[in-house]
Design a protein around this nucleic acid. Structure first.
Ligand SMILES: Nc1ccn([C@H]2C[C@H](O)[C@@H](COP(=O)(O)OP(=O)(O)OP(=O)(O)O)O2)c(=O)n1
Length: 735
DNA sequence: TCAACAGCCAAG
DNA sequence: CATCGCTTGGCTGTTGA
């Protein structure tokens, strides 16, 4: 039996685990924040070193950079004269040749960690990249501090190696015995009893869906083991757990916002598609904090005015809380506190941080009120979340400033909440405008300004660029948005893939990759998948309990399916099992910690709840029940209406007439956003000055028109995202 | 050639 | 007391018919 695992999992540093569940992403995010805010120098260990980090590393390049920085060293991500060490992990063939000729030591990341650990520069011999060892052993003695030759082009273009290794699963010697035991036990404890119980539970839950009464404790709910690390005063089941989970509500409210708009179609005027495109993005500032604050008594509000506030499930003052901060106000942010940060980290930054309680009821009501205020602006609204949405305003607004001021005042009157508004000619421009204006901002960004305004931001400022993408970008020498604006498109595409690469590039220029999809009144939204998860507070002892857990999740899935009137063709179970070397010290209290996913899937005929055993059966031998820390169940929905509009990615790569391209593609983009199809006027192509460029554009567009009959069909046929083949066909001439 | 599937990433 | 780490969608890459 084999399990695929990321090749470079680094297990010695639990606070930066990789390749596991999203849960670890939280840790990484936390790390990143910590790192950004802790840059004091510790010593001068690496003071004479210029260390080049290359490719994907474990621990992450970001972490190593911080580490080296705090010990006085300099870090570069591309080769340059003066580099004293190269840190690398996966060597591609071309680089292998390059590196083996260099006189600079090429070392494993372990070298940095060991040096720090021993507080001295160690001999490099032990840490030479194994691939190079044969060639280089003779040379290593005299390699340090040597000046290097000019870099070759390939050398500068750092590639990322996404190799995977297949690693045999070493079963715990006990597990088989335990399995056996459990199975026997299960048979003894009447397996059919579960079915019986299950039926009862099923009925109850469905009934509860209908009359929304809170559910009484049912026999199938999870049982916590005695003396488990998670102590609980009460038993919980999936539904009760979700009631308390902010992320569950957040996801739920997004769906509710969509449904609200379906049931209450916006009455505002229809935007004018022939007018200059104009989009608005609006977001309530630190939503949870404002809402929780507004629910306080006047006296308390006065007391907390202009104090650092946050919303967090912990009310403790004990200093070691691992509770997440859902939202913090801008005073708190000035201390470096961020949403999603653990309370104890935040309290290290600001002792006076005031904790407010969640009030999900209030958030839900405020969200509804917020949306109510948006209904008469325009007929086209696209919700992003409970506190955030895009609205199309093309041709509807005369005085922008006045409009924004009035809307903000109106929302303030109705909800008491302060919002930020951004206007721009594309979604991303509006989005960035909001971000730049926060808090209490109202900004309109012009196309030209956009590129200048964000030039000096780090790449992760752009929506769509998170921790992972930023790290990879850094490793190919792109740090700022400006770097990205001037990056080589083909390098980006080579690194991130054809579409993703193009989208990243486009984003830096303010061109949307997100498509504006306003809610269509009366038309039920169909999801592609429905998911139910619980990865908190799960500590099981018996197989029976595991089955109950899975069953409970399936009951929720079924309820969701019925509620949304969707069909589920297949379910996928991701069981989160505690990672072998997970460091308990870093684990969130009650959380799942570092986990490895064990996955199983099966097709569904009939009710999903009937599959609780069948879905577990194939993977039962791969883990011990007491190691299970949670599960995600994904239901893949069927009977999807085919999407008419797939994502379209505009191609730009002619540097000499970049501006013309930008302009042209902006126009195309705008038309696309305006009509969802480019039906329009392609005579503007004739206005392109540069003959080369003009012909290329004509070729590509024209070719497709001929092929498909007309431009509408070209774009309807936009299946090319599915396969690179189509990309080549559609846009090959451009490349 | 393309649908299906699995995995990763981002977002609030 | 802790603590409530969910859910959806888009893109990449592989497979197999
Ligand atoms: N990791 C996160 C991020 C957000 N939220 C919740 C709390 C936020 O109030 C709400 C909206 O998220 P935003 O990203 O809009 O952040 P805020 O509204 O808190 O702040 P701002 O929009 O001013 O940056 O979602 C959360 O619970 N956990």
């Amino acid at each position: 039996m084999y399990r695929i695992k990321a090749a470079n999992t680094y297990e010695k540093r639990p606070e930066d685990p990789r390749g596991n569940s999203y849960v670890d992403y939280r840790h990484k995010k936390q790390d990143k924040l910590d790192e950004q805010l802790n840059q004091q120098k510790i010593d001068d260990l690496f003071v004479d070193c210029v260390i080049m980090l290359n490719g994907r590393l474990e621990p992450s390049a970001n972490y190593l950079r911080q580490l080296i920085g705090t010990h006085g060293g300099k870090v570069v991500f591309q080769y340059m004269p003066g580099v004293t060490h190269i840190i690398c992990q996966n060597l591609s063939a071309s680089k292998f040749i390059q590196y083996s000729k260099k006189t600079i030591p090429v070392l494993l990341p372990k070298y940095i960690l060991s040096c720090v650990e021993h507080k001295t520069l160690l001999d490099t011999t032990e840490f030479i990249l194994p691939q190079l060892l044969l060639e280089q052993t003779q040379q290593t003695q005299q390699t340090q501090q040597t000046q290097a030759q000019e870099p070759s082009p390939e050398f500068r273009m750092s590639q990322i190696n996404f190799n995977y290794v297949v690693e045999p699963v070493v079963l715990d010697p006990d597990s088989e015995r335990i399995q056996q035991k459990l199975q026997n036990l299960e048979q003894q404890i009447k397996i059919y009893q579960l079915n019986e119980i299950a039926q009862i539970d099923y009925g109850e839950v469905i009934q509860n869906v209908q009359n929304t009464d809170s559910q009484k404790s049912s026999p199938t709910q999870l049982q916590y083991i005695q003396n488990s690390p998670v102590k609980t005063h009460d038993k919980i089941n999936v539904r009760e757990y979700h009631e308390q989970s902010r992320l569950h509500h957040l996801s739920q409210w997004k769906v509710e916002a969509q449904q609200f708009l379906i049931q209450n179609p916006p009455q505002g005027p229809k935007p004018n598609d022939t007018a200059a495109p104009l989009f608005m993005h609006i977001d309530i500032d630190c939503f949870f904090v404002q809402a929780s604050y507004s629910a306080l008594s006047a006296q308390q509000q006065l007391l907390y005015q202009s104090l650092p506030l946050c919303v967090c499930s912990s009310s403790n003052t004990g200093q070691n809380s691992t509770a997440d901060i859902a939202s913090c106000n801008y005073v708190a942010r000035s201390y470096g506190i961020r949403n999603g940060m653990w309370l104890r980290t935040a309290q290290e930054k600001c002792k006076e941080l005031v904790i407010l309680k969640y009030d999900f009821q209030v958030y839900s009501e405020q969200s509804k009120r917020f949306y109510q205020n948006l209904l008469d602006i325009s007929s086209q609204i696209m919700p992003v979340s409970c506190d955030e949405c895009y609205i199309k305003l093309s041709g509807l607004i005369s005085n922008k400033e006045e409009f924004m001021t009035e809307l903000k005042a109106k929302i303030k009157r109705s909800t008491g909440l302060i919002t930020s508004i951004g206007l721009g000619s594309s979604l991303i421009q509006a989005r960035i405008a909001t971000k730049l204006g926060k808090p209490n901002g109202q900004i309109h960004i012009g196309k030209e300004q956009f590129i200048e305004l964000i030039k000096h931001k780090t790449v992760d400022f752009l929506p769509g660029i998170g921790q992972e993408t930023a790290t990879v970008m850094n490793s190919i020498g792109i740090y700022s948005v400006g770097d990205l604006q001037h990056a080589q498109l083909n390098l980006l595409q080579q690194t991130f893939g054809e579409i993703k690469g193009q989208q990243l590039f486009n984003s830096s220029l303010g061109i949307d990759s997100l498509v504006f999809k306003p809610i269509q009144g009366g038309q039920q939204q169909k999801s592609k998948q429905l998911q139910v998860s619980q990865n908190f507070g799960v500590r099981l002892t018996t197989l029976l309990q595991l089955k109950q857990f899975i069953y409970n999740l399936l009951v929720e899935l079924q309820a969701k399916q019925k509620e949304r009137n969707q069909q589920i063709n297949r379910i996928i179970l991701h069981l989160n099992v505690v990672a072998k070397n997970a460091n308990p010290q870093w684990a969130k209290n009650g959380g799942c910690g570092q986990c490895e996913k064990t996955t199983s899937s099966c097709s569904i005929q009939g009710e999903v709840t009937e599959y609780y055993e069948q879905i577990l059966e194939p993977i039962l031998s791969q883990f011990r029940v007491e190691d299970v820390r949670g599960a995600d169940i994904v239901g893949v929905c069927g009977e999807q209406q085919p999407e008419i509009i797939r994502n379209k990615t505009n191609k730009i790569n002619d540097r000499t007439s970049l501006n013309q391209f930008k302009e042209l593609l902006n126009n195309f983009q705008e038309q696309q956003q305006n009509t969802n199809l480019i039906t329009g006027d392609i005579s503007q192509i004739d206005q392109i000055q540069d003959e080369n460029v003009r012909e290329k554009v004509k070729q590509v567009i024209g070719l497709q028109i001929i092929k498909r009959g007309n431009l509408d069909d070209v774009l309807k046929y936009d299946d090319f995202q599915q396969k690179n083949y189509y990309m080549q066909q559609m846009w090959g001439e451009f490349l």
